[in-house]
Structure formats: structure tokens, C-alpha cells
Computed example of a mutant assay.
Amino acid sequence: MFSNSTKYAIKAVLYLAVHSSEEQKIMIKDIAEPINVPKHYIAKILQALSKKDIISSTKGPKGGFYLTSDQLQTKVMQIIETVDGEERLNSCLLSLEKCNSDNPCSLHHLVFDEKNKINERLKMTILKDLRQHIMRGESILPL
């Protein structure tokens, strides 16, 4: 359902949500290693997220990436849409271009309602909520 890029983006943003602040910025190499993503790959993803103001970055010796309190209000769906676009979540599981409610593939009716429920939850869930789950030990995050 998610591309690798989206998975990496969510992992990186959650890592920032837990470990960064405006005073505690994190460099690319310090994000890439714990989430197990090549530095150059995660750098491109983080730059795209920064351009959309989902995360913040500062250049220089004390630079790096971080989240502001406002950015902790970002919905998970905004990350997904920034990286993959909305089409990815609404696309056919079998990647059939002509699949839709009027012309369904064999899996369409099996997953359509559940995909819609997941999409709605992703549109409602904010980073701060996921961060709280991690901080309470209810979810894991690569360290």
C-alpha cells in the first residue's frame, strides 16, 4: 500500500518527532542509520518534506532537521501525499488502470471499504498522537 519512499519518510519524521526540537536538530547521518535508510535517499525525501513545511531544516554547523510544535500537528496523510501523491492510496492493488467501482478487479470489493477506512484514519491522525504512542511504549521506533 505504501511505497518504500513513503515508509522511509514516515519513519524519519517519527524519528524527528521523538528525538528533535528547535534546539536539538538532527543531521542526515544521524537519521539514516537508526532507520536503516541510505543517507542520500533519505536526504532527498527530507528535502521534499521540508519544502512542504512538514519538517524544518537549518543549514550550518548547528544545522539539521527538526519538527516545530506546529509541525507535530501534521496529519500522516500529508506525508504520504507529499511523497507518493494521493493516487497511490487510491490505486488498484493489482495495479490495473481500469479498476474502479463500476469496473472492479477481483480484489476491489474485498479491500475497497477497508482502504477507505484506513485513508480516513490517516487523514485524522497527527504526528503528535503517534509520538505519544512511541513515548508511552505503545509503539516501536528504530533507535
Rank of each mutant, 00 (worst) to 15 (best):
Y66V: 00
K7P: 00
L143A: 12
P61T: 11
K62W: 10
D30Y: 07
K98R: 11
K59G: 10
T125I: 07
C99K: 05
G60Q: 13
D30E: 15
R121A: 08
E81M: 14
M135C: 10
Q71M: 05
K44G: 10
A32F: 07
E138H: 12
I31E: 00
N100E: 06
N100F: 05
S50D: 13
L141C: 08
M124Y: 01
K7F: 02
N4F: 04
E22A: 03
S5D: 15
K39P: 03
D102C: 02
I35V: 07
N119I: 15
D30V: 04
S5I: 02
L93N: 07
A32R: 03
M1N: 01
T74M: 03
V83P: 06
T6D: 01
L89N: 05
S106W: 10
A32K: 03
L72H: 11
L141F: 08
A9E: 09
L16V: 08
L72R: 11
N116G: 11
H19E: 01
E87R: 15
Y41S: 14
I140P: 03
K59H: 09
C105Q: 07
H133E: 15
F65S: 07
T6L: 01
M77D: 07
A17Q: 07
M1R: 02
T68A: 11
A32G: 06
F65G: 04
T6C: 08
A48Q: 13
K52H: 10
G64C: 01
V83D: 05
G60I: 12
L143Q: 15
I140T: 14
L93Q: 04
P61D: 13
N4G: 00
K123L: 09
C92Q: 04
C99R: 09
K25W: 03
M124L: 03
I80E: 10
L96G: 09
V83L: 07
V18E: 06
K52Y: 02
K128H: 10
K11A: 08
S5N: 13
M135E: 15
P61S: 09
A9M: 01
I54Y: 04
E114Q: 10
K59T: 12
D102I: 04
D30F: 08
Y15Q: 02
E138Y: 13
K39D: 14
C105M: 11
M135I: 15
P142G: 09
G63Q: 06
C99E: 12
H108V: 01
L94T: 02
L141H: 13
T58P: 02
S20Q: 04
M135R: 08
L67H: 05
E120S: 12
Y15D: 04
M27W: 05
G63H: 03
Q78N: 14
E81F: 13
L96K: 14
V111E: 06
S57D: 08
Q78C: 04
S95P: 08
I134C: 09
K115R: 06
E120K: 13
H109R: 10
N4K: 11
G85I: 12
T74K: 02
